[in-house]
Design a protein around this nucleic acid. Structure first.
Lengths: 180, 180
DNA sequence: TATTGTTATACTCTATAACTATA
DNA sequence: TATAGTTATAGAGTATAACAATA
């Protein structure tokens, strides 16, 4: 019934060769970025598969807890999702009774998404896993400073679209040093 | 006929809010990683859409030029693709006459993939774009040192699966300092 | 007319299973 | 029997268009 957190690992095609060490592609930043992203998603799945939570699902639950007043438009914006896809996301969680939709006073078009008790208690376990997962990544990256630098780099890339045309001032970090 | 390099930008749903500044999700590494990866793919598309090359397509052409002796199994492994999906990738490029399949002496099951003249000349333009693209990312990241550190971090995440179970020795970088 | 939530739909990427022809 | 290439198919993510109800 509930969706599998992420796909399994290779079967038919063999172990799929972990890293193309020495290949031409090692110099291509976008290529490594994609591979790293896939690796972290797989790791996410290992941490969360028994809770049957996918990244977007956990993210929505977190947002609902921390920003309970957020409307649907704001939530889709924060999650960087299209409205249409947000509906399906909420449907999945609502079918599991983790969230509810309710009317909004003052605008009969709008609907409010709220955590149920069940959703909140699942989220509490999810938050534990999340902390453990982040802790693991922190160690892999080599400490707070390395993590902060890494997040800074990611922020710069995320803001790439904005820096693109304005040829100067190529920055605008959103990141906060987690320590020093 | 030829595949579009990447999807267009939002229409129906508004500008989709660039960055969830201050949101809960800013602390979640995997979330930022995904967003950064999407941003670089969009930027890739801007550089390559008129060549009608997607990331995997460029990567294969690069590999074919630098590793012309590689068999199909090796290529799929280097690209971290499933055999089944590699076929479709080659089909697209073969339909555009950028690559060719030819028999291999000594194993009548195997087929060799080679660049055509047309493929090579497209690739030469592609390599120019690729250098410009990497240069852009280099500037965004803030120089060679920042880029090298970033690649190191990505390598560590890519090797995450291997470091996972063996609780000590959480490393194994593949990266070479681009400068210093 | 514009906006909110929604449905329907399509395309890309990734994954699995199973076939074929060789080995 | 195992392997190389292939086909078919399915799932997850992301994209667009269009509609009903409401503003």
């Amino acid at each position: 019934m509930a969706p599998p957190a992420v796909k399994k690992q290779t079967y038919d095609n063999g172990p799929e060769a972990a890293a193309p060490v020495g290949g031409v592609l090692n110099d291509i930043l976008g290529y490594k970025l994609r591979r790293a992203q896939l690796a972290t998603f797989e790791e996410f799945a290992r941490h969360f598969h028994d809770l049957e939570l996918r990244p977007a699902e956990l993210a929505l639950l977190l947002l609902l807890k921390r920003t309970p007043e957020a409307g649907q438009a704001e939530l889709t914006s924060l999650l960087v999702l299209k409205r249409a896809n947000f509906v399906a996301l909420v449907n999945r969680l609502a079918r599991r009774e983790l969230v509810e939709r309710s009317p909004v006073d003052g605008d009969r078009r709008a609907r409010k998404i709220t955590l149920t008790t069940k959703g909140l208690s699942l989220l509490e376990e999810g938050e534990k896993r999340q902390r453990a997962y982040e802790q693991q990544l922190l160690q892999i990256l080599g400490g707070n400073r390395a993590r902060a630098d890494f997040l800074t780099a990611l922020d710069r890339l995320i803001n790439l679209a904005e820096t693109r045309d304005c040829s100067s001032t190529p920055r605008r970090d959103v990141n906060q040093r987690t320590s020093g």
